[in-house]
Design a protein around this nucleic acid. Structure first.
Length: 510
RNA sequence: UCCUGAGUAGCUCAAUGGCAGAGCAUUCGGCUGUUAACCGAAGGGUUGUAGGUUCGAGUCCUACCUCAGGAGCCA
């Protein structure tokens, strides 16, 4: 490949396809791959891609040397090239711009005897997943990965600009964090160890050291889940804040999600269009609700009337007051909502207590809209979450689940100790839970009792109990699964398209 | 772990228990504005594996393998 080096320094300078609108009339050099080629007699229409987009080239036989014409004609799908030509606006070209090719060098010619496996016809999921390393070259997959990158960057950006310190927990852990999920076990110099399923317990420690913290990294679940919502390896971003109660946690989640969706809408209109995403549904998420911003009310009502569903169905999102909101600073709590950077125009998401969610599901079952009844006291099942989230055009926050169905570290509600001060954020359009959070138990005696009740090894949690021995404070946090958030924002039907190389129950290749 | 479904050409799919087929891709030929281009021709098969029923099995039966998406569990 060293023979290529001189070609990489070019004059005129190398451009990217995404920037060609600013180069109309210029001669540019592009480095990329042949995406597709059509021809009509002695006219060739090679379509190039370079990772930033695609551009159609045109090569009339009479306009170039016979060598260049034959070289272009010999190109096979995904052959790599360096191409020079002038940029011209042309309505006949798919992107509106076209490249009059003057010269083209082949960097690597894909042999016709072994063509690029992914054609422009449809393929099955098994085939595509076996060729994931090549599938990501297609426009749709590239667009998704660009949006994923923005979602990750916007998530970090939100915390970084609001005084959070990033403190990443270990990935190798000595014991289960929550004692519920099945973990990947490995041998740690003769002792058992596990891949982390959540950094939460560790960032509780860093939150009591640094105040506002977050972690961002991969997590692992060995559950034999085989659905469109599950990966065995996925990325999670988790904030944890000292002196913050459940109300603050919910406001943080609202502002955080609003920031992420806003950024994606700012930067990825074209990519969302490539994917076929209904952009109006994302705009509805960040639209202020009427009761808090009357002058913006028209935006929301337009967004909602655009998808007018069953008119007899109550649309509780219209007014936040329809549902009980949690009073800031729960009784018996020293916490309040610290200033986390959201403004008065931060949209509020609809909230449902567990009891209200149960009533909604009960009514839906009796109306024949759910196949199975929801049993009071049980956690929400997937069909339950799908139903609830489909009733709103913003993410919906379900809070105060029965403590018995939740993790041992969740603080009981002083108003009803059978409930936990926790919240799940369900994404709209049936995407289900993307965020799970809670206020944590801050009493040493209660936490110790909970650990024993759940038959967890006390010794493994001594360090965690120390956080309640030395300057314990009310604190809260949540975790957001990146891939589920990407699937929702991109409107995908499976999380396997949201990560470059998905790891699922039946797949660890490529 | 349970339930359901699918495995036929490189890919996507057809084929009443009776000759193994089409489109795309590949190769060759044609076409100066193509839009997953189009037109003509050619090559390409151990029908997931192993048994069984039958004169005859891609098709029916049994077991297994692989994959898919739903439940449970979760983000």
């Amino acid at each position: 490949m060293s023979e290529l080096e001189p070609k990489l320094v070019t004059n005129p300078p190398v451009a990217t396809i995404a920037s060609l609108a600013a180069h109309v009339g210029d001669t540019v050099t592009l480095r990329g791959w042949l995406y597709n080629m059509r021809q009509s007699g002695k006219l060739l229409f090679p379509i190039f891609r370079d990772g930033t987009g695609t551009i159609q080239g045109i090569v009339p036989k009479a306009a170039v040397s016979p060598e260049v014409f034959e070289r272009v004609k010999s190109l096979t799908q995904e052959s790599s090239v360096i191409v020079t030509g002038s940029v011209r606006a042309d309505a006949r070209a798919p992107s509106g711009f076209e490249l009059d090719v003057a010269n083209l060098e082949i960097v690597h010619l894909v042999p016709a005897s072994d063509p690029f496996p992914i054609s422009h016809k449809e393929h099955g999921t098994d085939f595509l997943m076996e060729h994931r390393h090549l599938w990501i070259r297609t426009p749709r997959q590239s667009a998704i990965l660009r949006i994923r990158a923005t979602i990750m960057r916007a998530a970090q950006e939100y915390f970084d600009t609001n005084g959070f310190v990033r403190t990443d927990p270990p990935i190798l852990t000595p014991a289960a964090c929550e004692g519920t999920s099945t973990l990947f076990e490995l041998d740690y110099f003769g002792d058992p160890a596990f891949l982390t399923q959540s950094g939460q317990l560790y960032i509780e420690a860093t939150a009591l050291a640094l105040g506002k913290v977050y972690s961002f990294g991969p997590t692992f679940r060995a559950e034999k889940s085989k659905t469109r919502r599950h990966l065995t390896e996925f990325w999670m971003i988790e904030p944890e804040v000292a002196f913050m109660d459940l109300e603050g946690d919910m406001q943080l989640a609202e502002a955080f999600l609003t920031h992420i969706v806003t950024r994606v809408l700012e930067l990825h209109r074209a990519d969302l269009t490539v994917i076929g995403r209904d952009i109006a549904k994302l705009e509805a998420v960040i639209a202020p609700i009427p009761s808090e911003s009357e002058n913006e009310a028209v935006i929301l009502s337009e967004a909602r009337s655009a998808e007018s569903k069953d008119p007899e169905e109550a649309r509780p999102v219209t007014t936040a007051g329809t549902f009980s909101t949690t009073e800031p600073g729960a009784p018996g709590s020293a916490a309040s909502s610290p200033n986390l950077g959201w403004s008065a125009t931060t949209p509020r998401f609809p909230r449902l207590s567990y009891d209200e969610a149960h009533a909604m599901l009960d009514a839906a079952f009796k109306a024949g809209k759910l196949e199975a009844p929801h049993i009071y006291g049980d956690d929400l099942g997937s069909p339950d979450e799908t139903y609830i989230s489909s009733q709103f055009d913003k993410p919906v926050m379900v809070h105060r689940y029965p403590a018995a169905s939740k993790a041992f570290y969740m603080q009981p509600d002083p108003a009803d100790p059978t409930k936990a001060l926790c919240v799940d954020v369900l994404a709209p359009e049936g995407y289900g839970e993307i965020i799970g959070g809670s206020q944590r138990v801050d009493s040493y005696d209660l936490l110790r009792a909970r650990i024993l009740e759940h038959n967890l090894p006390l010794a493994a949690f001594e360090w965690y109990l120390d956080l309640r021995r030395y300057g314990s404070v009310p604190h809260s946090g949540f975790g957001m699964g990146i891939e589920r958030a990407v699937a929702w924002i991109c409107g995908l039907d499976h999380v396997r398209e949201t990560i470059p190389f998905p790891r699922t129950l039946n797949r660890i290749y490529p």
